[in-house]
Nucleic acid binder design. Sequence first.
DNA 1: TCCCATTGACTGAACGTTCATTCAACCCGT
DNA 2: ACGGGTTGAATGAACGTTCAGTCAATGGGA
Lengths: 213, 213
Amino acid sequence: MNVQSMGSPLFDTEPTDTREAIMQATYRALRTHGYAGLTIQRIGDEFPKSKSLLYHHYDGKDDLLLEFLSFMLERFEETIPDREYDDAHDHLTAIVDHAVPEDLDPERAEFRAAMVELRAQAASDTAYREHFTRNDRFFRDRFATVVARGVKEGTFREVDPDRVAAMVLATVHGAMQEEATTDGAETADVRGELRAYIESRLLPPDSPSGVVE
Amino acid sequence: MNVQSMGSPLFDTEPTDTREAIMQATYRALRTHGYAGLTIQRIGDEFPKSKSLLYHHYDGKDDLLLEFLSFMLERFEETIPDREYDDAHDHLTAIVDHAVPEDLDPERAEFRAAMVELRAQAASDTAYREHFTRNDRFFRDRFATVVARGVKEGTFREVDPDRVAAMVLATVHGAMQEEATTDGAETADVRGELRAYIESRLLPPDSPSGVVE
DNA sequence: TCCCATTGACTGAACGTTCATTCAACCCGT
DNA sequence: ACGGGTTGAATGAACGTTCAGTCAATGGGA
């Protein structure tokens, strides 16, 4: 055990300033009480200073929550695998394995549940909707780039990269939502079948997974 | 124009009793104000009788909302295509086209948005979670049955029906969530690629879509 | 047939609590 | 002694809920 005893590497690092401390407190309050129970009071309870201080740093609840959404989306986008991969198939598989993980540690599960709760607000809140529209485009573009590379280099067949990206993103979102909102989510099945989709739909007809000619 | 001037066939039919009228009012309040803004006051405003009456018919807000969830899930499950189909491929395609529709009328879009908002509550509410766990199982079983038939009759390859069902359900959920929470959802791409998945993964290697030998 | 006791649907006013927000005052490093 | 970070107390509005009471319909006993 170190300075911090067992906590999220994303959110239990000592905050550099008060605003970051408030973001972390908001996250804790969200995970503890859910979005419906997310009040200024509860956020105030989750960090050492007074709740009045929140109004010194933010215009109000809406302002605070909107910045919190940006804070969350930044961290969400950062986690995507993006190092150099030998070929597009490896890269795409890494993305799928990361987005539909084999065994999801509780901490990441909580983070993803928080994302699902936040996203649902976008159904009735225009500002939230704009954020998630941008976020989806970000991931779709990233996925499409990988697929396009695969097509160009001959790793993949001549598919439409945007269509494939939209499909993968939707499946990933669905898996995430199911995992966050049910007890019996068949995540392993989705991951397995998503891999099978890539092989049967993207890989050239003759190559049975990773064959070099 | 008829008795009812332009409204949801699901929710603007004249309610048979007060409890059903309350369910409809709750739906209207949810769509107007979002789940976060769903209060007893607002529900009361959406139907002609007094808000006190809500407490005569339900134990309280939680009780009312839980019954509303059942009410919504029943209607959600009813809509799945289930008439007799000539073969499993037709049936599965009908399901996909229904679940990821070509042009979604605003009324169904609202209903699906409501479902997305309700589902998100399951991330922090155990009772909601149980309902959605059951609901997912319902759809997964239905899908798996269709796939299993296709495998048995030779329409499909020897895939694992449960895995395929989990994949299709996740993709459908993702498409629904994206459509409800963003402005730029690429629903057409998802539908197209989901069809392509079925063809390249489920159909026998030689048959290029719907060939009878 | 009349009357009244009983019921269930329904109402308006009120309750105590919690909500987001404000503000005068205080602390403390410069 | 100045100014930004910080505080506790206070505010009115909105929340879910309660409750005494009205009203129309029902059903026996006289």
